[in-house]
Design a protein around this nucleic acid. Structure first.
Lengths: 122, 122
DNA sequence: CCGTATCCCTGACGATACTG
DNA sequence: CAGTATCGTCAGGGATACGG
């Protein structure tokens, strides 16, 4: 109750979830899941992440590459082929995503019930 | 390699991290950590989350209350006192936050190294 | 096939001032 | 103390079209 507040709220790792990389943005988590089963081409990702525009997918992949989460391999063929694959670092995030998914599966009903019950009073 | 893509990318739980609640936004995670040690008053939270404006803190707390992550208790005293406390549901999210923090502590150096090594080529 | 180039729009977040 | 009210900014995301 009267305990001191945590002194490390502004740990350099990152405010909020405490992750130095974005997995809470709109597409990064889904890209990680898509690549969990093996390398994928740009178009494969694009169709799996239905609704993503090429611009945004490019931005997402670039940021992930910058952070060492995935690699981009260009094959000098015709037509051109480019493959994206998770690095070990990227793969290590899958555990975290799974934990999030498990929480979600376990508690979504509670959240929805809370939303229905919420009135704004009090 | 040729494995099928995960069929459940658009699970109702939520795109991205797969959470029905926002913990990836700017303040929710930090509020959860602040309340981990016990109930807190509005002003306590405000000073712990240095830089947060009252408007944004109110919005954050309201959303968390709506989702059943915390309760708001008003004590009819003078001066007024209001306490925010985690529900069991909110407390259950602390495990996830800790997992995120552990990932961060373990892998932040790798991420920073990847950023330094990143050139934009290839 | 694999992107880039523009333009636009919304919503999270913040600054500031004020109230029961 | 515990908020509300207004206004403004800015970046993520999207629509659309085009290029190597």
């Amino acid at each position: 109750m009267g305990d001191p507040l945590p002194p490390d709220l502004f740990h350099p790792a990152c405010p909020g979830v405490g992750l130095p990389v974005q997995i809470g943005d709109k597409w990064t988590g889904m890209v990680l899941r898509c690549l969990a089963s093996g390398p994928r081409r740009f178009t494969e990702l694009r169709s799996a992440l239905r609704g993503v525009t090429p611009k945004v997918l490019t931005e997402t992949l670039r940021a992930m590459r910058r952070d060492g989460l995935l690699t981009r391999t260009e094959y000098p063929e015709n037509p051109p082929r480019v493959e994206y694959a998770l690095t070990p670092l990227g793969r290590s995030l899958l555990d975290l995503l799974d934990a999030a998914r498990r929480w979600s599966d376990a508690h979504l009903p509670e959240v929805l019930a809370a939303r229905r019950a919420y009135t704004g009073d009090g």
